[in-house]
Design a protein around this nucleic acid. Structure first.
Length: 450
RNA sequence: GCGGCCUUAGCUCAGGUGGUAGAGCGCCAGGUUGUGGUCUUGGAUGUCACGGGUUCGAGUCCCGUAGGUCGCCCCA
């Protein structure tokens, strides 16, 4: 690469070839499964008024304090590239006047998110998330269904064996405040044994000390109070109901009282699907309940629950499991001699109209075209020499086993159905159905002839 | 934002203690103007990430910058 060649901006990456196919597989599987659960897809703007995020994510969260891509536009407004999409979806619910009717609203989304961070494998400045939100449901059954849907998507992607669901409760507001006070009390008494980072957290966000990776901090955890000692009866009942529903949905999970989640808007349910296969980026899907967020956007109280998942991370799991989708295999139409080209184009288009993936090179002799066919992974070649065309015939060659046969032009699709050409089998079957239908119509006409 | 390691052809990588570059794969052309994969012959790969320094001489040593990677922070 020449030194004058432009590089992608730091933390961004191009999705090309296999990587793009994995990416698309993740999004399409999620979209498909979420639709089965009754979620409708929304697309909200990639940038929003900065207050959408500063108001919702918590003034002390890292995302707000140091990771936002914010800038002032030409009109003097402060706008921010979305670092996540839950806040945007809640804003959209309110902006579009959807808070009064038809609740709960079940929303699926997929798209790019932006955080100014130091890039690593599985962590980028522009990355992609899929997510679902149930807006306007206070029942723990909604939490369980949201989690079940996430689990189902991972099963559909065949990566569910590699992840573990960890759940926790953050309680309601009284539970959380009591717990926070107890934690501050405990860690203040042992301040001398806390790491430097955690001493800072003590003043800012004491809950975060719980998932510190510092070995010294870890030794303090066993004696630390847990949220479960401070749950109100209502919060405890909510959590118990969630676990019961998860069992009913047959979603395996592990309780982890240390899960706290980074964004301030969560209450009650908090959960993460984690894996040990992605190094430091172990969280593959994470979410929880956020009963106060819509209100913060200027709407009425609208209890809600959802999750977001990193497409890049799910894609890495697909790659590691050898589950990269293969590219569709085309049929290649090969005219021999210039005079054959017009008829070859007619046949090429007929194949495409029938639903097959078909290609024809723009130039080259037979040998070159065959080489190219092989290179692009074609499953079959339809060879059209002037000799064959004069007899209304074509050669259909299976490029996997090297066998070939001369067939009538109207039997080309049928012959391609014997190969791995994408769409050929379906096209041939559809053709048969049509013929069968025509035959039935023909029989029905017989009585009139009598 | 902090620390470790890394950066040589399109890709994966060799290049003891300094003497101005190599392999495999891939690519292009021929053997083969009606048959791809296999085989065979030939060909082009490059500011050795960038900038500076030491030296007669730097891919090699030193400093800085950028990017990547691993970890911390945090998170998808």
């Amino acid at each position: 690469m020449s030194s004058t060649a432009l590089q992608p901006a730091r933390g961004t990456h191009d999705l090309i070839g296999e990587e793009h196919r994995r990416h698309r597989r993740v999004v399409e599987a999620a979209r498909d499964i979420a639709a089965r659960y009754g979620f409708e897809e929304w697309a909200t703007p990639v940038f929003e008024d900065t207050r959408v995020f500063s108001r919702s994510l918590g003034e002390t969260s890292d995302v707000v304090t140091k990771e936002m891509y914010s800038f002032t536009d030409r009109g003097g407004e402060s706008v921010t590239l979305r670092p996540e999409n839950t806040a945007g979806v809640c804003r959209a619910l309110v902006s579009n006047g959807l808070t009064q009717s038809n609740l709960p609203r079940k929303v699926f989304y997929a798209g790019p998110m932006f955080r100014y961070e130091r890039p690593q494998k599985g962590r980028y400045r522009q990355f992609h998330q899929i997510g679902i939100e149930v807006l306007g449901a206070a029942e723990p059954l909604a939490d369980a269904e949201v989690i079940a849907c996430g689990w189902h998507i991972q099963q559909e992607l065949e990566i569910a064996e590699g992840t573990v669901l960890e759940v926790n409760t953050l309680g309601d507001r009284p539970s959380r405040e009591a717990y926070r006070a107890a934690l501050v009390d405990y860690f203040t008494r042992h301040q001398d044994r806390l790491s430097e980072d955690s001493r800072l957290r003590l003043g800012k966000n004491p809950l975060r000390i719980l998932d510190s990776k510092d070995p010294g901090d870890q030794t303090l955890m066993d004696g630390a109070p847990t949220i479960h000692d401070h749950l109100t009866a209502e919060a405890a009942a909510f959590y118990a109901a969630l676990r019961r529903h998860l069992d009913t949905f047959r979603v395996p999970f592990r309780e982890n009282p240390r899960i706290v989640r980074g964004l301030d808007y969560y209450n009650h349910t908090a959960f993460e699907f984690v894996t040990d296969r992605l190094g430091a980026q172990g969280t593959v899907m994470g979410g929880g309940r956020y009963d106060g967020l819509v209100e913060q956007m200027g709407g009425p109280p609208t209890p809600s629950v959802g999750w977001a998942a990193g497409v890049e991370r799910l894609s890495l799991l697909l790659e590691a499991a050898g589950l990269t989708p293969s590219a569709p295999r085309p049929a290649v139409v090969v005219p021999v001699g210039d005079a054959a080209e017009p008829q070859a184009i007619a046949i090429l288009q007929r194949l495409r109209e029938a639903g097959l993936v078909a290609e024809m090179a723009y130039r080259g002799n037979l040998r070159r075209r065959m080489e190219r066919a092989n290179r692009i992974g074609a499953a079959a070649a339809v060879i059209l020499g002037e000799d064959e065309l004069a007899r209304g015939m074509a050669i259909v060659r299976n490029l996997d086993d090297g066998t070939q046969a001369e067939v009538r032009l109207d039997a080309v699709i049928e012959a391609l159905a014997e190969t791995d050409v994408e769409g050929a089998l379906e096209a041939a079957m559809a053709d048969e159905l049509e013929e069968g239908f025509e035959a039935m119509l023909g029989e029905e006409e017989e009585p009139d002839d009598r």
